[in-house]
Simulated scan of single mutants.
Amino acid sequence: MDSLLLLLGFVCMIVGVLGSFLPVLPGLSICWAGLLLLYLTKAVENNYWILGITLVITIIITILDYVIPAKGTKKFGGSSYGVWGTNIGLIVGIFAPIPFGVIIGPFVGAFIGELLYDSKNHKRALKAATGSLLGFLASSFINFLFCIIYLGIFITIVWQNRVLLF
């Protein structure tokens, strides 16, 4: 049973790291599930501090994934219309059957939102949409960084406890 949990945990780690690039997958949450699976093995002593702290970090970053693109729009001079457009575009982009919908959706949403606010100022709309895109990229980078940290924690725990697959 330990071998299965260890293998599933490692698969979660790899899928989570890939999920930090593919916005459709909740990468950090999957990585945390991998840590949880590791701690469910009998070979590793439970450490609720590590699980608790990483869970809190995962929840905070998951919330920030939806906040950062909107803040990027606002930072680049966008109005509340652009912020709403970013959020709506993010949701539409998740479900849209187009490649890179999660990247394109917030950008287009912010652009359309700003054009609804001021249809004559295309430059401002483009600037706000760029802020949305940069916010999304920053959010993805943070996700990737913490996925790598969680993978490092996983490998360190496996190494320290000399957990073997077979």
Rank of each mutant, 00 (worst) to 15 (best):
M1R: 13
D2F: 06
L4I: 12
L7R: 06
L8P: 00
I14F: 03
V17L: 15
L25Y: 01
L28E: 06
S29H: 09
C31F: 06
L35P: 00
K42I: 10
V44R: 07
E45H: 10
N47A: 12
Y48N: 14
I50L: 14
I50G: 09
L51P: 01
L51S: 11
I53G: 09
V56S: 12
I61M: 07
D65L: 11
P69V: 03
S80N: 15
W84G: 15
T86V: 04
N87C: 14
I94Q: 08
A96M: 09
I98E: 08
G101C: 10
F107T: 11
A110W: 01
E114V: 07
L115I: 02
L115D: 03
D118H: 03
S119I: 05
S119M: 10
K120T: 08
K120P: 00
N121D: 15
L126G: 13
K127D: 13
A128V: 04
L133A: 15
L134C: 10
F136W: 07
F136Y: 09
A138T: 11
I148K: 04
I149W: 00
I149N: 07
Y150S: 11
L151N: 07
G152I: 02
G152W: 00
F154Y: 09
T156Y: 13
T156V: 13
I157A: 12
I157E: 08
W159Y: 10
N161Y: 04
F166P: 06
